[in-house]
Design a protein around this nucleic acid. Structure first.
Lengths: 204, 204
DNA sequence: TCAACTGTTCTCCCTATGTTCTCTTGAGTA
DNA sequence: TACTCAAGAGAACATAGGGAGAACAGTTGA
């Protein structure tokens, strides 16, 4: 099968995600409207490329709309290789690792931004279902909400995985372990490296 | 295969690690921007070295972006497609599902025997770090030890995920939730469908 | 039967992107 | 010191890709 262009892939994924709202068999005009394209001729070109690629059924001279041949999400077939940057809840900023190992992670567990993997050390988050030796997928972002579990860097020297809370003038990092206390900081001491988006655990 | 220069290797590993957020088929310009290089001509040289090395598909005069050629990497970089057989800790034997969805799972999370995936329903195992909606990887086996977490079938009608204990004449299925009591059975009533070997969790 | 709708074909124009080439710089080595 | 090679900047060129729009063909339903 010939590779699709970027635009063709976009249109195909759009059809997959929206075929319910589009009534399962949208016309070329319907797809144009839904995607904000004015020209039925242009969309016709794209749809016929999808037909040639075996993703859409040929019209065969009928006016019965677009039928996808399969609606399963092909991206579930991909493994993303994320850097395994170290262990967390014990102190060094993990970017220091020069050539990290990588870990294969199914793409559906990844975020839109760049991600990396850390191995949990200790039991500070045990009441949140995060155990020692779990592999956690962290998405690089600083846009976090209260209640998110984040990787926070304290004083640029120590990284920790905790539940985030920010008030007007304080940052509070909550362990989820009844035997441990929250840690309270001046916000200047803290930067966010990323937030927890997925977890992998292997039982031995 | 021609030896890559250091820079070419860097670019290749960058593409491997970032193809997800680059949208799978980045243009030469896209890769330049992501890597902070200004010159499309320079990146073109590097990409064509990777093409010559057999790591990137040739453009063949098309403007379809950069496609990595899948290489056979170490085995833990394989994605295994396991049947997603249903949800657990609520009643029906899950083999009943005729054409299950599949889930891509990294091979390093799989066992030697046949495996399948269940979605956890409820909080009976919350104190073992197993939460509602977690995806659990179950290896088909009946060789279990006391302390393992198993999928047990009760009276051939109801499947449950619990910690296993067997004495001379009793089977005890332990929830891991302080508010729930252990369940005690005659061994004939119980068969083991498999044991828990891995867990995946996605935070939304 | 006929109008409406929708698939099809085609032309035109513009943009994005691959390609080629020259030049400069810096590192490594003989 | 001189030479080689890798790397990158940048410019210019060619064309694939994308979209608008018009006109036509023929299916569909009233």
């Amino acid at each position: 099968m010939q590779q699709l262009t970027k635009r063709q892939s976009e249109i195909y994924h759009f059809l997959q995600q929206h075929f319910h709202e589009l009534g399962h068999t949208p016309s070329i005009d319907d797809v144009c409207q839904a995607m904000g394209m004015k020209s039925r001729g242009s969309m016709h070109k794209h749809i016929h490329a999808l037909i040639d690629a075996g993703l859409v059924e040929p019209f065969n001279g009928k006016k019965r709309g677009i039928h996808l041949i399969s609606t399963t999400e092909p991206t579930d077939n991909k493994l993303v290789h994320l850097p395994l940057l170290g262990k967390i809840a014990a102190g060094i900023p993990f970017e220091a690792i020069a050539n990290p190992d990588t870990l294969g992670v199914p793409e559906h567990l990844c975020g839109r931004n760049e991600c990396f993997v850390l191995i949990v050390k200790g039991e500070s988050m045990i009441d949140a279902g995060i155990q020692d030796s779990d592999q956690v997928i962290i998405e690089k972002t600083s846009e976090v909400k209260n209640g998110d579990i984040v990787v926070a860097l304290i004083d640029n020297t120590e990284a920790t995985l905790k539940r985030w809370e920010k008030t007007d003038d304080l940052v509070i990092l909550h362990p989820e372990n009844a035997s441990m206390k929250a840690m309270i900081f001046n916000p200047q001491r803290i930067s966010i490296q990323g937030k927890l988006i997925a977890l992998l655990r292997r039982y031995l």
